[in-house]
Amino acid sequence: MGILRFIIRRLIFMVFLILGVTIMIFFMINAIGDPIDILMAERPGITQEVIDNIKSYYHLDRSLTEQYTLWLWNVVQLDFGTSIIYNQPVGSMLVNWGWETVKIQVPSILISLLLAILFASIASTRQYTKTDFGVMGTALLGRSMPGFFTGILLILIFSYWLGIFPSYGAYSTRSPLMGSLLLDSLWHMTLPVMMLAYFNTATLTLLIRSSMVDVLRQDFIIAARASGLPNRRVVYGHALKNAIIPALTYLAILFGLMLGTAPVTETVFTWPGLGFLYITAIQQLDYPVIMGITLIITLMLVLANLFTDIAYVFIDPRIRLE
């Protein structure tokens, strides 16, 4: 089967998947009854007429299937509806809050990749030494460390005890640090990025080290060493290039997952990102926002999976496309 047919098949599956997830969330939210009824139940003094008006504004007076098709049709035209709580277009909310999430997630993934390459090369070339055990031990601990606990410890140490970094928010409420908005932003980003980077570095280091150990034992490395290449060029030039492939595909998954883990990160640091927005939207049953964020999260995860599938084929032509 050609690569093109493979990609097309995956794309069709992707569409079904996105439809499946959004339909699931949509009908789950509506299964509990009308979101407006639930919201208004706690607000006495609102006449039925007003409620009916709101309902017809959000098309809640129509049948469920009609509502879903309408939502889908609007989304295809990039109209995500209006948030019930914030009374803002969901599309621009996704962009604004999403930027804050990307701001901490992308740097942390990139920093993790660099650190992991460094640590894994050090550990794998000094296999079974104290350095190796030290790196591996820290990585094993990091893989099991719950993200929010890392965050809590970071806040305790750097924010409460040492008082170096802020413990919440993305910007200073009064005056920015040293009068510079950029510096202020970086200052607030430090702890969340550290929290995310610890976990990512740990998993990536374990992955790269184990493939490094495999690669370093192969014939072409022995040949390279035998031909008199300096150790540094053998390790960083030849071995690393081959060992990093599994890590690169895992990296795609990390990018896909970054919104999935955002709720926890952003709750710990009261960070105004998509994850935080998602949590408040679920609590307040702001269903256009829930639907919009769910769609984005699913889309990213699915794209990451597609990318990994295709990358595998290009990297290793021996892989059969089924």
Partner: peptide, 8 residues
């Protein structure tokens, strides 16, 4: 995205 679906 299992985690967010579970939350809902």
């Amino acid at each position: 995205p299992v985690f967010v679906v579970i939350l809902v």
